[in-house]
Amino acid sequence: MKQASANNKLIIKLVVSVALMFGFGFALVPLYDVFCRITGINGKVDLTPATYAESSQSDRSLKIQFIAVNNESMPWQFKPNAYSMKVQLGKTYQTSYQASNMTSEYMVAQAVPSVSPSEAAQYLQKVDCFCFNRQPLKAGEVKEMGLAFNIDPQMPEYIKTITLSYTLFDITAEDSKPIASTNL
């Protein structure tokens, strides 16, 4: 009997750890997001506007490149209006991308930003960005999509060029669903 109750106690502990580890698997999703936001490990950029105001400006400047990518079967024309800019750290800049829906149907797109080198992501503050919202375009419509950003003067010295890319995904089908459902 003593054996049986000792077994039961141990089994309960083990089953609880299994359940916890199953939960931990899912907890890795937000943990990873938090971890990435802190370290910029994957070059993923915050999808929420920076509350950050213009900070102390610095004399340093660096080159920022803009890139547009269409994900598969995304037929829009999509390109940055400026391919690169020399920017001063701490100052807010405006630029824009142009998107045109060349199809004969109403479509909705979501732009997903990414920064390289990835550790630069956390220093790139977006004040306003078309990637914060999904972008609906009627058939044949052309739209200028604005972007305002500044770069934190804390940016490590060794980074001389950063690249900001936007990938345009077709989300017409999922338009009814909330975006960023895993971004807790």
Binding site: Q110, S181, T182
Partner: peptide, 20 residues
């Protein structure tokens, strides 16, 4: 079920899959 754990379009990340 239409979640986007691993799809960049919905705020997910394919690299997250590899980490997990």
């Amino acid at each position: 079920f239409g979640t986007s754990f691993f799809s960049a379009a919905g705020g997910g990340d394919p690299v997250l899959f590899q980490h997990v």
